[in-house]
């Protein structure tokens, strides 16, 4: 069959290309531009090659931030995913209370990030915050501005409060799609509650949980606003995660070159880990299909 050659159709793609160029390609190339040059202002640039990358790869500060970041993501995934599933399993399936639960669950997701930070910043204060004050009255020495452990606990609890709903809502959607006959068959087969979870609910939720884990990983790995508002990365550097460190370097110290190199590596790390996550989980899925 002869194809009609009509290249005019390419023009129709042009608006998208322009949009993507301005929203993604141009900013990214700007960063690349900074990452291989040095500047002292006045728009004077000096070629630096891969020096900044080399410097960043050997920077203890960056490795420490990456370490904190990895620990933070691991902790919140380990808490939010099981907790989200648990919440979803215990939510009413239909009726008035199901709607109430859904709205309540969605609320934290609708609050602007810096407001979340502010809420917890005040909530945890020993002098006026409900949490801090109550703990102090109970005789528990808690001070997130001075104690690194307390700061971590607060940041983690804040993230769990903010984002567990997302996992719960996704898991809930997965659960809702399971036909009633599966539960009936399980009863007939005398399956235990655990078996129902293990062989019916979990496999049926697999798809949405994959999305939940990916989203939560990416978001937590890039977290900036809430901990910045809450602790400002302190005490010391204890809650300085990658983004916070990056912003300090780029805007605080105005080290644009290293910060740009740092950004690119940060981007690649997230891309790589997400890709590995996705591939592993999709392959697991396929292997099981055999």
């Amino acid at each position: 069959m002869d194809k009609t050659l009509n290249n005019k159709a390419w023009f129709l793609v042009a608006p998208v290309l322009v949009l993507v160029a301005f929203s993604a390609v141009v900013p990214l190339m700007t960063v690349v531009n900074y990452s291989v040059q040095d500047t002292f202002g006045n728009n004077q640039f000096f070629w630096a090659g891969l020096d900044w990358f080399d410097q960043m790869l050997h920077s203890e500060r960056m490795w420490a931030a990456l370490g904190r970041q990895a620990i933070f993501s691991a902790i919140i995934l380990a808490i939010e995913v099981p907790l989200g599933i648990f919440v979803a399993l215990n939510m009413p399936k239909k009726g008035f209370w199901a709607s109430v639960c859904l709205v309540l669950m969605a609320l934290p997701l609708l609050i602007p990030f810096n407001v979340v930070g502010t809420i917890w910043q005040i909530f945890g204060r020993v002098d006026i915050g409900l949490l801090g004050y109550a703990l102090a009255k109970l005789g528990i020495g808690y001070n997130y501005t001075a104690n690194a452990f307390d700061a971590w606990v607060t940041v983690v609890v804040m993230d769990v409060w903010h984002w567990t709903s997302l996992v719960a809502l996704l898991a809930y959607a997965g659960l809702q799609s399971i036909p009633e006959a599966y539960y009936q068959a399980a009863k007939i087969d005398q399956a235990s509650r655990w078996s129902v979870f293990r062989y019916i609910e979990l496999p049926k939720m697999q798809g949405v949980l994959l999305i939940a884990v990916l989203l939560r990983f990416m978001d937590s790995f890039m977290i900036y606003t809430e901990p910045f508002v809450l602790t400002g990365g302190g005490p010391g550097n204890s809650t300085t995660f990658l983004s916070i460190d990056l912003v300090k370097m780029a805007i605080g110290q105005f080290d644009l070159g290293p910060a740009a190199a740092f950004s690119l590596m940060y981007f690649l790390v997230i891309l790589a880990i997400s890709w590995v996550f996705y591939t592993v989980m999709v392959n697991l899925d396929k292997a099981e299909g055999k």
């Binding site: 006959a181 009936q184 068959a185 007939i188 005398q190 399956a191 062989y199 979990l202 049926k204 099981e288």
Partner: peptide, 24 residues
């Protein structure tokens, strides 16, 4: 009881599926 639409335990093998009511 057998239902109108197939109910199988996806992650199990056919053998495990058939054995499930007996194993329980």
């Amino acid at each position: 009881q057998v239902f109108q639409f197939p109910v199988v335990y996806d992650t199990m093998t056919v053998r495990e599926n058939l054995a499930f009511p007996l194993r329980n």
